[in-house]
């Protein structure tokens, strides 16, 4: 099983490096975690995340945590909006906020669907909340720019 996930990870990294514009489906949590990890790992400027509860299976994972810490340390602007008032991975949310003020904002709904937008050019966008299916694209600046716009809109920035 590790071989398959490792192969998947390497292929997605290749897509990021090659700025592959192919849009692919994602429905499994295992694969979603890999996608989010690699998107953040390759971020150079911004990471915007909208999620429902800052789920432990993704953000409680030590690898994801290390990747997010690294991103903050290399100066990437990270902003995570969590709809629920109490994030599931609460301890880590607090740690991130200690590292950089207001990185994780609980009770915030910037966008209706869960998403992760990186560097205004890559994204993972949930399309069906019940099925938890999502679209993933390693390079689509117009759509990513639009998504990032929600996080940078004066209303949302002012709330901060």
């Amino acid at each position: 099983m590790d071989i398959i996930l490792q192969a998947y990870r390497e292929r997605f990294v290749e897509m990021i490096r090659e700025n592959d514009p192919e849009i692919v489906d994602n429905s499994s949590r295992l694969h979603a975690r890999i996608i989010i990890q690699e998107l953040i790992r390759h971020a150079s400027e911004t990471v915007f995340i909208q999620c429902t509860n800052f789920a432990s299976d993704i953000y409680g994972d030590p690898e994801t945590q290390g990747i997010l810490r690294d991103a903050l340390q290399r100066g990437v602007h990270v902003r995570i909006a969590v709809r629920n008032s109490v994030p599931h991975a609460e301890a880590f949310a607090n740690e991130l906020n200690d590292l950089a003020h207001d990185t994780v904002r609980s009770g915030e709904n910037v966008f209706a669907n869960d998403c992760c937008v990186v560097d205004r050019k890559r994204f993972r966008l949930e399309r069906d909340k019940k099925e938890r299916t999502a679209y993933v694209c390693a390079y689509n600046p117009p759509l990513a720019e639009k998504l990032a716009g929600y996080f940078e809109s004066p209303v949302n920035v002012a709330e901060a």
């Binding site: 071989i3 398959i4 192969a7 998947y8 292929r11 499994s28 694969h31």
Partner: peptide
């Protein structure tokens, strides 16, 4: 496995 199309893998 790597040779498979990316979307096929999932």
């Amino acid at each position: 496995v790597k040779k498979l199309p990316f979307s096929e893998q999932e």
